[in-house]
Write a protein that binds this DNA or RNA. Structure first.
Length: 583
DNA sequence: TACCCGCGCCAC
DNA sequence: AAACGTGGCGCGGGTA
């Protein structure tokens, strides 16, 4: 059963219960049955906003949880979580719209043909949260105030129902997984990542010296800067200014075209070592120093905003705090609560394994039989060393043509023709300006008008060499994007299914242990997600079970997306008190 | 002062 | 190993 929620004004919520086929499968990943058209037996009521949490709680405690249909999870779920209410599953119409609008599977649908409208607008998550606090969208005059969730839901169901049978089942899973991801993102923000500010301060003091006010250079940083200036024989230097630094280096006779690490590393000069040390410390100070802690850590928790579907490929993005780029340097401040542990799980070589499954490459499947795919590639005789295997695979998936990975590519293509052929095909499609599609049906965007103009200009009679070269360069560049899109995007789908399956299992575990009504954070729960890695915060006694559930969910994700393809998705797990000890 | 953009570096 | 995919973000230095 679906229940559609619509915010009418600050005080009232419209509730429409659709009496469509009950969802016998309780999993949030279960694809819904086709919707009768017109909607039969809907009950349409209005309730006060204040009564919503209690209403949702009642529905959730029934024998079969409904699927909540709402415009945007960020507008509904934080308030429910704050009221102590969790939901099992939902349809996030905005996220689903975004997928269906662009998908090749639904290209012929009414939804895809419609002009851009309020469902194509991306609400700034921070504004959305402010709206939540205020209680209404209208007061803030935001885009999205004129969204009709019932009509949109019908359009989306029609789009999916009109796809091919294959497209229907793949998109059904994708939309369910994407929506589950939206729930998880909100729950992770609510729970927060345990963060010990005192430990963070110790890490900073060790590296930089005692805390100083913003704008003041810490003592150890000053000392390193003195070394740099001495080596350059200058009295003043602002290394934070690349332009100034470049000039100073050139004056000292160092021939570099930029001040990037990788270029400086190649230089033999006494200034290089302290300069790189300075850059490292300076980065720590500005990106994750005391200001960062003050801004982002409250009550022992780091609560970033995750943005599901924020990346074209379907990966999550984050907004504020740099959640998806936490340097290893500060992960020591991520400490489990007393009597609790982190279960840190990482999908081993996820993207090459995804490519194996996508392409059905038997030789690569054989190489991936063990936990280490790259070592497996060495063992089957495809490449000579593990580092070579890794750089060659990454190069193949990113579209590298030069250097070591370029040299290794022919051997890789010989050993794994289907896998390499698969990404090459995706690259060629992109070079022609065509869309490519992930396993579950997320399609890449079409290149923009500029790109097309460059291509057509080059194909005109009498096009000059520069135009032709530029067109070829941009075509190759777009090909690298589509080449990577199919792999990165399908990996993101696998990760969503993995995480959604784990979430369901953790919820069941919590219910078994403490009955219903338990708070999200009183039992094992997800606290962090990083593309192919998840962190569960759990009581010590639950760790063994959580590790087992993580593996179960990984196996299930593989089956859901690839059926019985002979590809395994091993996960490495670590049970730790500090995140720094995970890897 | 508010924005914008290139640079550089962090994550995967 | 090399500069090849997706991002966020802080900074300096420019412009409106």
């Amino acid at each position: 059963m679906h229940i559609v929620l619509q915010q009418l004004d600050g005080a009232r919520v419209r509730v429409v219960q659709l009496e469509d086929a009950p969802l016998a499968d309780p999993s949030p990943l279960a694809a819904p049955a086709p919707l009768p058209e017109p909607v039969e037996g809907a009950t349409d009521t209005v309730i006060p906003r204040a009564e919503l949490p209690a209403f949702v709680r009642r529905q959730e405690s029934g024998p079969v949880q409904p699927r909540w249909v709402w415009d945007d999870t960020t507008l509904w779920y934080p308030a429910l979580l704050a009221a102590g209410v969790r939901v099992a599953r939902c349809v996030d119409l905005r996220l689903c719209h975004n997928i269906l609008r662009n998908a090749v599977f639904t290209a012929a649908s009414e939804l895809a043909a419609a002009p851009l409208g309020p469902w194509d607008e991306v609400l700034d998550p921070r504004i959305a949260q402010r709206a939540e606090a205020v209680g209404t969208l209208f007061d803030l005059d935001l885009p999205g105030g004129d969204r009709d969730p019932l009509a949109e839901f019908a359009l989306q169901r029609a789009a999916v129902d009109g796809a091919s049978p294959q497209g229907r089942s793949q998109l059904g899973l994708l939309l369910a997984a994407e929506s589950a991801g939206a729930l998880i993102a909100a729950e992770m923000t609510f729970a927060g990542l345990p963060w010990d500010a005192a430990m963070h301060d110790r890490i900073l003091a060790d590296a930089l010296g005692p805390r100083v006010p913003p704008g003041v250079r810490p003592s150890k940083l000053t000392a390193v800067l003195d070394e740099v200036m001495a080596a350059l024989q200058v009295r003043e230097l602002s290394p934070e200014s690349p332009g100034e630094l470049l000039k100073a280096l050139q004056r000292a006779g160092i021939n570099v075209t930029s001040t990037r690490q990788w270029e400086l590393q190649e230089i033999e000069h006494p200034v290089i070592e302290p300069l790189l040390r300075y850059k490292k410390l300076s980065r720590l100070l500005t990106a994750n120093g005391w200001t960062w802690v003050d801004t982002w850590v409250k009550d022992g928790r780091f609560r970033p905003t995750y943005v599901p579907g924020g990346v074209v490929t379907g990966r999550w993005a984050s907004d504020g705090g740099g959640a998806l780029q936490l340097p290893h340097q500060v992960r020591g401040a991520v400490l489990a609560d007393q009597g609790w542990r982190f279960v840190v799980a990482d999908a081993a070589q996820l993207e090459p394994r995804i490519l194996t499954a996508l392409s059905g490459d038997r030789a690569m499947a054989d190489a991936g039989r063990g936990v280490d795919l790259y070592q497996g590639m060495v063992d089957v005789g495809a490449v000579d060393t593990r580092p070579h295997a890794k750089v060659a695979m990454l190069g193949a998936m990113y579209g590298s043509t030069t250097g070591e990975s370029g040299r290794l590519l022919p051997r890789l293509a010989k050993a794994f023709p289907q896998a390499i052929g698969f990404v090459e095909t995706a690259a060629r499609a992109g070079e022609r300006g065509e869309r490519v599609t992930t396993r579950l049906g997320r399609s890449s965007p079409l290149p923009g008008a500029d790109w097309r103009e460059v291509q057509s200009a080059a194909s005109m009679e009498g096009a000059n060499a520069a135009a032709t070269q530029r067109a070829r360069m941009e075509a190759r560049s777009w090909g690298r994007f589509t080449r990577n899109f199919v792999v990165q995007g399908t990996a993101a789908e696998w990760a969503l299914c993995w995480m959604a399956g784990l979430r369901t299992r953790l919820q069941a575990l919590a219910a078994r242990e403490s009955g219903t009504g338990a708070d999200l954070t009183s039992s094992a729960h997800l606290v962090f997600f990083l593309h192919d890695e998840i962190v569960v915060h759990c009581p010590l006694v639950q760790t063994d079970e959580v590790v087992a559930l993580v593996r179960e969910a990984a196996a299930e994700a593989g089956r859901l997306i690839f059926g019985n393809a002979p590809v395994e998705f091993p996960v490495t797990t670590a049970v730790v008190t500090s995140y720094a000890d995970a890897k």
